[in-house]
Design a protein around this nucleic acid. Structure first.
Lengths: 227, 227
DNA sequence: GTTAGTATGATAGTCACACTATCATTAAAG
DNA sequence: CTTTAATGATAGTGTGACTATCATACTAAC
């Protein structure tokens, strides 16, 4: 099926040297880096290995991304923009704030699936990268500099948006943003724990997400907001 | 004041090649690695730099720790054991489960300070390492293997203990362990966000911890359990 | 007191990662 | 038809992450 309107996901321009969306090689770098990072983990991932994978060279990849850390931030940024787009799209024309919040939670946990138009991006693999690796994007000594450059705009923007739903439901709730950052982080580590350190949680995510993480988060949030 | 009884913090033996507690050099490695990692960050930290710092050699450090990742897990493990000891000590003889839970939260957030007997360990620096770096200890492709070796025992044990307090307060609460892992993780990233990405939270931790993180966490937990 | 063992230091070497630089080739744009 | 931009090919540098070897100093045992 042909797309009539093309969705454009915007990522901070300082995250790349050449825009990877504009060329075949660039899209190849992005799509295969997702596959490879998901497969071998970010620490074991190198531009040399990626180059081999796509039959290109290290030097060519360096023409797009300064280093693998910038690439990771690029991928994670892309993910947050995509998430925000999904939230906008799926909550559009919905009045009920609780409904909107529920939709947002499902999107965060990837419980509901949205047919995307990004042929070169494996969204499932990217989601797993975000779960496993995204905190490494900001847990560095460069956070403050990177934040000044606006690298975390997507994450902050999404949190702000969902925190807005929270405030619509409970205008007196004191911690809408803290709650949302807690929930977003929890959506990742609860999934991680359920798969790798199951004694840290009652939630069990068996294959593809039966939705126990989102159930748990939903329970937390609504109990907090409505008593 | 002299200690009459000496506290022994136990760390999984597989985390080191030679027990660093047993020698001067070993304790030096541990104490200076804490200072150095806190200062330059885990990614920039190398055994060579540490060796220089303590006037020793790379080779000597490798006789104690297989690699810097194992050293990180060692430090984090030590921290969790120490935290659990503090919880045990400070909640001893207290009957009221709510009080115990409050104490545990304060300990997690380092709001209450405990005079320790570990001269060679800078607990404040170690706490900052745990906030900034501890998730890197398990967010790797080796989690499952490392978990099998018991490297995360301390973390799991502490969560289980505090989850026990939760169950004492609210026996019907469905997610005691998930809640506790969420809270422990939140105690780290809320502090991190308040310092580096403040738009992600209402909490602000000005110097030494005025305790806003613990206030927030306390609010969450008790609203959930009694709300 | 000699010997044997253990901890550390000193040095050097290997391999892989993280780049940087240069030049050749090809394809598209004017 | 020429210029320019994108890629490939190759090589080189510095550093990190180790491993190996040998010398030395101290300690503990016989």
């Amino acid at each position: 099926m042909a797309a009539i309107a093309t969705i454009q996901i915007n990522v901070n321009e300082k995250l790349f040297l050449r825009n990877p969306e504009h060329t075949e090689l660039g899209r190849n770098i992005v799509s295969n880096s997702i596959i490879l990072i998901e497969k071998i983990g970010f620490e074991n991932f190198t531009f040399k290995k990626l180059a081999k994978e796509i039959n290109s060279t290290e030097a060519s990849i360096y023409r797009y991304f300064e280093n693998k850390h910038k690439l990771l931030i690029y991928l994670v940024s892309w993910y947050w923009s995509w998430m925000e787009y999904q939230v906008d799209f799926q909550t559009n024309n919905i009045e009920d704030s609780e409904k909107k919040l529920n939709i947002a939670i499902d999107i965060l946990c990837q419980t509901s699936r949205f047919d995307p138009e990004f042929l070169h991006i494996n969204e499932d693999a990217l989601h797993r990268i975000v779960v496993d690796e995204s905190s490494k994007a900001y847990l560095t000594k460069d956070v403050d500099a990177d934040n000044k450059e606006g690298f975390f705009h997507g994450y902050k923007s999404l949190c702000r948006k969902i925190a807005g739903f929270v405030t619509e439901i409970a205008p007196d709730f004191k911690y809408p943003r803290a709650l949302m950052s807690t929930i977003v982080e929890a959506s990742h580590h609860q999934k991680f724990f359920s798969e790798h350190l199951p004694s840290l949680t009652e939630v069990s995510e068996s294959e593809g997400g039966s939705g126990e993480v989102s159930e748990y988060l939903r329970y937390l949030i609504f109990k907090l907001l409505k008593g």
